[in-house]
Amino acid sequence: MSPLPEVPAAAGVYPITVRWSDMDAYRHVNNVQYLRLFEEARVYAFKDWFGADRDLIDEGLLVVSQAIDYLVPMEFAYAPARVAIWCSGTGAASFDLGYAVAGPEGDDTVYARGRVTLVAYDLLEQRPRRLGEAEREVLGTVRGEPPALRGDRSAAGSRGHR
Rank of each mutant, 00 (worst) to 15 (best):
D24N: 14
R54P: 00
R36F: 05
M74Y: 11
D55A: 08
R19A: 09
S65F: 14
R19H: 14
D48M: 02
K47G: 09
E75W: 13
R27A: 14
F46Y: 10
R42I: 03
T17G: 05
W20D: 04
A41Y: 00
D48K: 00
N31R: 09
Y44I: 06
V13N: 04
D53R: 10
F38D: 00
V64H: 09
V29D: 05
V63N: 02
R27S: 15
F50I: 10
Y70M: 12
V32E: 12
V18I: 14
H28F: 07
R42D: 03
Y70N: 10
A25E: 14
Y70P: 05
L62T: 05
L71D: 04
Q66T: 14
R54Q: 00
E39L: 01
A77R: 14
W49D: 00
R54C: 02
P80Y: 05
I16T: 01
Y44C: 08
N30M: 15
L71A: 07
Y14N: 02
Y70K: 10
R19S: 10
D55M: 09
P15H: 05
D53M: 07
L37A: 04
E59D: 13
R54T: 05
L37E: 01
I57T: 04
P15I: 02
F50H: 07
V13H: 06
F46Q: 02
N31T: 12
Y26R: 12
A25G: 13
S21C: 07
L71F: 08
G60E: 05
E39A: 06
A41N: 03
V18Y: 04
G12H: 10
M23A: 10
V13P: 04
F46N: 01
L37G: 02
Y44R: 12
M23G: 09
L56M: 06
D24M: 11
S65D: 15
R19K: 13
Y70V: 12
E59N: 08
Q33V: 15
V64T: 14
V32P: 06
D58S: 14
Y70W: 15
I57M: 10
G12V: 07
V63T: 12
P15S: 07
I16M: 00
G12E: 06
Y70S: 11
D22L: 11
P80F: 08
V43K: 00
D48H: 03
E75K: 15
D55I: 08
L71N: 06
L62K: 06
L56D: 00
V13F: 05
G51L: 04
A52K: 08
A79H: 13
R82F: 07
Q33K: 15
G60Y: 05
F50R: 04
V29L: 12
Y14F: 12
